[in-house]
Design a protein around this nucleic acid. Structure first.
Length: 208
DNA sequence: TACTAGATCGGCT
DNA sequence: GCCGATCTAGTAG
């Protein structure tokens, strides 16, 4: 598949400056891109979750600024990467005004370009049985493995040219579904997860 | 298909 | 010390 990347379609700071609840559903259908060693890794965002601040007990920003969550309180349009469960990284897009502490977690991506590299990053030499296309980037930890994102990418400016998001595909409002967020105990009833209906790259861990 | 345990460690109570 | 915005392999039905 030939992919036409137009840098002029890159989402700008203004796009990210709004509320995470506004930005999250609009990220669906956009193209997440990483240039690494001259190679292009890219895929369509198909699942996200919004995390706010004082009003959201599940958010890392809920208890205020710390060293770990500092990027969330910085300028919007940067990547917030955190380490969890002792083995995985998850990546978020910072939104809102400085000091808001808002972000959108990227949970599902449909791989389009650099799939061979993603497969290598995800599975290396082990267990080729699990290496199905729909299993490469259907979950936040998997996305960071496939795109080789770890703590070094925490704070990366998405308006620069290493990791960025392009306007790509118009999504019909009717094909966007929402539900409660995955894997949290606090504020678990808020319907702040958004995903594309019937897309196979949405993480399976869904309720409702 | 559905549920469970184990891996593994930084952040914070 | 405890727990987590996860994933996988294993077992049972």
């Amino acid at each position: 598949m030939e992919l036409n990347l137009k840098l002029s379609d890159k989402l700008n700071r203004h796009f990210y400056s709004r509320s995470a609840l506004e930005v999250a559903p609009e990220l669906l259908g956009k193209l997440f891109v990483r240039i690494i060693d001259g190679e292009i890794l890219a895929g369509i965002i198909v699942e996200v979750e919004a995390y706010l601040n004082q009003s959201d007990m599940a958010s890392h920003s809920y208890n205020g600024l710390t060293k770990r969550n500092a990027v969330m309180f910085g300028e919007c349009g940067h990547l917030y990467v955190y380490f969890t469960y002792g083995m995985y990284y998850c990546c978020n897009v910072v939104t809102g005004a400085r000091n808001d502490g808002q972000a959108v977690l990227i949970r599902g991506i449909e791989p389009l370009k650099g799939i061979d590299i993603m497969l290598r990053n995800r599975f290396a030499e082990k267990n080729p049985k699990a290496a199905l296309l729909k299993n490469i980037t259907n979950g936040p930890g998997k996305i960071c493995l496939a795109f080789d994102i770890d703590k070094h990418e925490n704070g990366t400016d998405l308006t620069a040219n290493r990791i960025f998001i392009l306007d790509y595909k118009n999504i019909d409002k009717n094909s966007i579904l929402s539900s409660t967020r995955v894997g949290i105990k606090k504020s678990a009833d808020l319907p702040w997860r958004f995903y594309l209906k019937d897309n196979p790259h949405v993480s399976k861990n869904s309720k409702r």
